[in-house]
């Protein structure tokens, strides 16, 4: 019966892995539908809480799959769920990356890389806009992001921990200031 549950988890997560075009945000809705409405493994509230936890904890947002697996079937469930969500797409990506690497050194290969680089930069910018739409803390978030990017430009050796610390200090300072006023 237990094995059956692991299989069920894998059966939910593995297809989601392959339809996540554009990344994890693309599958939160179908994932919620599957685990809340169809299988009824968790309530809508629990799903939203797990979404918040996955956003708060380190790692990709898709780690919500780990939590769903854990809730349904403990640590092994968490492992099965994580692997089922990450492995299929990773194998596909692996195949594409290998095919791509085979042609390294050819002139057109370099042209393709050069051509993709402004698009990648644009996608990173677009991702920043999407993230800020999500967090909704407005001007302050922009200030922190610009300060951090600036510090990285001038103090190249700084540890990521210090960079995250800059964000915490600025946000806490503003929160304290608001309380005092």
């Amino acid at each position: 019966m237990r094995d059956n549950l692991y299989l069920q988890i894998a059966a939910v997560m593995a297809p989601l892995s392959l339809i996540a075009v554009g990344g994890a945000p693309a599958i939160f809705a179908p994932m919620q539908h599957e685990v809340v409405d169809v299988r009824q493994w968790l309530t809508g509230r629990e799903f939203v809480e797990m979404f918040a936890v996955a956003k708060f904890a380190p790692g990709p947002g898709a780690m919500i799959s780990t939590l769903i697996g854990y809730k349904v079937a403990g640590w092994i469930g968490a492992l099965v769920s994580t692997l089922a969500l990450f492995l299929p797409s990773s194998l596909l990506c692996m195949a594409v990356a290998r095919a791509w690497d085979k042609h390294r050194g050819k002139p057109w290969h370099k042209a393709v890389e050069e051509g993709l680089s402004p698009i990648a930069a644009g996608l990173v910018f677009a991702g920043i806009l999407a993230l800020f739409r999500l967090v909704d803390s407005g001007v302050l978030s922009w200030i922190v992001a610009v300060v951090v990017a600036g510090v990285m430009t001038w103090r190249a050796k700084i540890h990521p921990f210090s960079l995250l610390g800059i964000g915490i200090v600025i946000f806490l300072a503003v929160a304290f200031a608001r309380k005092l006023v």
Partner: peptide, 16 residues
């Protein structure tokens, strides 16, 4: 505030 601060700083890495 801590969470928002960390998230904003992380976006700073992307901005760079």
């Amino acid at each position: 505030s801590v969470v928002d601060g960390v998230a904003a700083a992380a976006v700073g890495l992307n901005l760079r």
